[in-house]
Design a protein around this nucleic acid. Structure first.
Length: 390
DNA sequence: AAACCGTGGCC
DNA sequence: TGGCCAAGGTT
């Protein structure tokens, strides 16, 4: 093993040395005092947040709830997740209920949360757990990793929170806490593996193993409430005495990151067409790729150039009588890696033509759109058209 | 292994 | 207002 990778914790543990004042020649800067699990857990006991998926003190977490919340929380804020978590546990009280639901119901309940591959993997995972595992989630990191949608972080989080495995789930919070605690200045994403290795040493304190679930969640809460991205509240931090980043005055600048590439702009055109019985024409998007598996307004592929009215209308769906398309406005929507500007056109026809069904068109009552798997972008387009139509 | 994959809130 | 950020995973 490379001593530079081992860190002070492993070295100290190996030689059974006290950690206070230990140092390494190279690699991360050692803290002045070791981060104590007892201090973190004491802080957690005083400030523990109650969350819908979080077991009360002394109670056992429901693995289904832990898994569901962890999938929803991937790259998503607690505030955004709470109403979705409540809706899912109401609609699908157990993993068996979720497994036997149809995909449209699941996508409908997920609509608006984003990253729709999570919903597809969630459903597939539930079916795998029910079919292959008798409805019980694996209780090890390795077992959990075999399931779709569960990567290294989520496997560790479920193993720690639901099954009391003494592992450190390394998410954005733990990366931030770790880089500050050890003053690690190598930028993300390159430094990610080294940060993850260093983070495992947070578990070197045997007291962390007494309460793996609380310890993991305490790390999240510390990152979310104290060790925040901007203006960390170091004066309130239970680990301030151990933090090399604070001691060096660089905590708030960590973790360092490679600047992101500029976000390009793409352009789309979509069509809102209703008929005399208040049905709306939709299309199901491809199963993989952007907004995969969701329903949306018909329209041609998004591209780098704006669509002129004439060129765009060549891709408009047909109707009887021939639709009179009205430009109702523009929707701007920011995705992770590009900005999209959509021109929205609306028309009302007496009836849809058969060509629409041949095109894969799907027709739904406008009053039912609420519960359908329609992504936020398309809901914006629909809302704009409805404002202008009435 | 770098690219891809949503959305809403915040300053 | 625009860039940053959030309990990442898959390809």
């Amino acid at each position: 093993m490379d001593p530079a990778d081992a860190g002070w914790g492993a070295l100290a543990a190996f030689f059974r040395l006290p950690r206070v004042g230990s140092f390494v020649i190279s690699g991360p800067v050692s803290p002045s005092a070791s981060p104590s699990a007892a201090e973190l857990l004491r802080w957690y006991d005083r400030h523990r947040r109650t969350l819908p998926w979080r077991a009360l003190p002394g109670q056992t977490a429901n693995p289904y709830h832990v898994w569901l919340s962890e999938i929803m929380l991937q790259q998503t804020t607690v505030t955004a997740v709470i109403p979705y978590f409540k809706r899912f546990t109401h609609l699908f009280p157990t993993v068996r209920d979720l497994a036997r639901a149809d995909q449209d119901t699941v996508m409908g309940a997920w609509a608006g949360l984003g990253y729709y591959a999570r919903a597809r993997n969630l459903h597939a995972c539930a079916q795998m757990v029910v079919r292959d595992m008798d409805g019980r989630f694996p209780d090890t990191v390795e077992g959990l990793r075999t399931l779709p949608g569960i990567g290294p972080y989520t496997a560790a989080a479920i193993a720690a929170i639901a099954f009391a495995r003494p592992v450190v789930p390394v998410d954005g919070n733990v990366e931030r806490v770790t880089t500050r605690l050890f003053a690690m200045t190598d930028p993300l994403p390159r430094a990610r593996p080294a940060i993850a290795r260093q983070a495992t040493h947070l578990n070197d304190d045997p007291l962390a193993h007494d309460r793996p679930s609380d310890f993991a969640q305490a790390l999240f809460d510390l990152g979310a409430g104290i060790c925040t991205p901007r203006a960390p509240a170091c004066a309130l931090c239970p680990w301030q005495g151990a933090c090399a980043g604070l001691r060096e005055g660089i905590a708030a600048t960590l973790p360092r990151k490679i600047p992101k590439a500029p976000r390009p702009t793409r352009y789309g055109i979509h069509f809102y067409m209703t008929d005399a019985s208040d049905h709306l024409l939709l299309h199901r998007r491809e199963e993989s790729g952007l907004l995969g598996g969701t329903l949306g307004l018909p329209g041609p592929q998004w591209r780098a150039e704006r669509w002129s009215r004439d060129e765009g209308l060549r891709h408009a769906p047909p109707g009887r009588p021939a639709p009179h398309w009205r430009h109702v406005g523009e929707v701007k929507h920011v995705f992770t890696h590009f900005t999209l500007i959509v021109d929205v056109y609306a028309a009302h026809v007496t009836r849809f033509t058969n060509a629409i069904a041949r095109d894969g068109g799907l027709v739904f009552p406008v009053v039912r759109l609420e519960q359908m798997g329609i992504a936020s972008l398309m809901r914006k387009c629909i809302a704009l058209a409805q404002e202008c139509v009435e």
